[in-house]
């Protein structure tokens, strides 16, 4: 079983972790096109490269970020999310809906 180095807990069996998907910036939900939104929600380009992913250490409830190579599966680096997210994120007010679709 693979070992992952948790920035909080050190090296642990990969079975202690939950995968949280790729770290990717959210397009502005009010201004982006449907296509841009769909690509953000559904697509990931499955290419050979180093990707940045969310990982969660379940026993301690701790999220962190890992950089992993998609071909060798080598985990190159793990770090606390505060290294990447250090600003409070705000959302703009939503523009008026032009038409209210029936539910």
């Amino acid at each position: 079983m693979k070992i992952m180095h948790c920035p909080l807990n050190g090296p642990r069996n990969i079975s202690e972790f939950v995968y949280g998907g790729e770290v990717k910036p959210m397009p502005n939900p009010h201004t982006c096109s449907d296509k841009e939104w769909a690509e953000y929600v559904f697509y990931s380009d499955n290419t050979i490269r180093i990707i940045t992913e969310w990982w969660y250490h379940a026993p301690s409830g701790y999220w962190f970020i890992a950089e992993r190579h998609t071909a060798s599966d080598e985990i190159l680096k793990t770090y606390d999310p505060s290294e990447r997210f250090d600003q409070r994120i705000e959302f703009d007010s939503k523009p008026e809906l032009t038409q209210e679709p029936s539910i």
Partner: peptide, 8 residues
């Protein structure tokens, strides 16, 4: 907790 790791 994942969302707030981003939203701060």
């Amino acid at each position: 907790t994942k969302w707030n790791a981003q939203w701060r």
